[in-house]
Design a protein around this nucleic acid. Structure first.
Length: 260
DNA sequence: AGAAAGCCTCGGCCGC
DNA sequence: TGCGGCCGAGGCTTTC
């Protein structure tokens, strides 16, 4: 659920623990699934001092005086610092806090704690993450990098699928993807290679505009197309019926008239 | 009951 | 025919 805009707000929250030293860390078996063993997180973090924060797409990165720590939040993960959410409230999944949904965390020498709250158990912690697998960050993508990321040999996959491909551009999730295509007036099923020059330009513009505007509004869920995101919804721009189908493996909403 | 704002794996297909 | 890469489908997991 959380997409690049949300993870960026988590990063800003995490920025507050820079300088603090970790006294204890823990992660349950699911959160530690990408690690060599469930106990690896606790062993790796103890005694480390957080020196910086960073982010690549939806991956939150904590630099330390030793290993690099990272967190990903799946569909319902929220970062909490002493119970304070990285966003205004627990917007994702069930909008409430339950201690049994805290899956991993770090405790610091000053008494504070940074935890991952995740009902659906799809969040993960990582140690020395491999950034090679991730494409250019969605919040800092140039027109040139955008064109490179889209690529265009032959038809290629549906543009929506390509936008969601984290190895090309890191950070775009289902809602941001639908919103930028909505704004650009492009059918999400269009093969990348079939986009003409004007469409690629329009998409790059709507990409950056979507990041800026939704970032200012408060997150991925504040897009213009959101109000029509239900069966029977009508396009807020022209009143036409919205279509719903699976594109790029995800439930996709688009306007039957202005997205072509 | 079915879908969900993420990601990983698997298997089929295509082209060299 | 063999192989690698690309791409879509399905699974994970729990909740509402």
């Amino acid at each position: 659920m959380p997409e690049v805009l949300e993870i960026e707000s988590y990063r800003r929250l995490a920025e507050r623990v820079v300088g603090a030293t970790i006294t204890r860390g823990w992660a349950d078996a699911y959160a530690a699934k990408k690690l060599s063993s469930p106990g690896a997180w606790a062993r790796a973090v103890r005694g480390r001092t957080v020196t910086s924060t960073d982010r690549r797409g939806k991956l939150l990165i904590l630099g330390t005086d030793g290993v690099t720590l990272a967190m990903r939040f799946g569909m319902t993960g929220v970062l909490l610092l002493d119970g304070e959410a990285g966003l205004e409230g627990l917007f994702y999944g069930p909008h409430q806090y339950r201690s049994q949904w805290v899956r991993a965390g770090l405790e610091f020498d000053d008494g504070r704690s940074l935890v991952v709250h995740d009902p659906r158990r799809l969040a993960r912690v990582e140690i020395d993450p491999d950034l090679e697998e991730l494409g250019v960050d969605a919040l800092a993508i140039s027109r040139r990098a955008f064109d490179d990321a889209l690529g265009a040999r032959g038809d290629g996959p549906a543009i929506k699928a390509r936008l969601l491909d984290q190895s090309r551009i890191a950070g775009v999730g289902n809602l941001l993807g639908d919103e930028m295509l909505f704004r650009a007036g492009i059918d999400p099923r269009t093969p990348v290679g079939r986009l003409d020059a004007a469409q690629r330009s329009a998409l790059y513009r709507s990409f950056t505009q979507t990041m800026r505007t939704l970032g200012r509004r408060g997150g991925s869920h504040t897009g213009d197309h959101m109000e029509a995101r239900f069966p029977g919804g009508l396009c807020p721009l022209d009143g036409a019926a919205m279509r719903i189908d699976t594109v790029g493996g995800r439930t996709t909403y688009w306007c039957s008239v202005h997205q072509r």
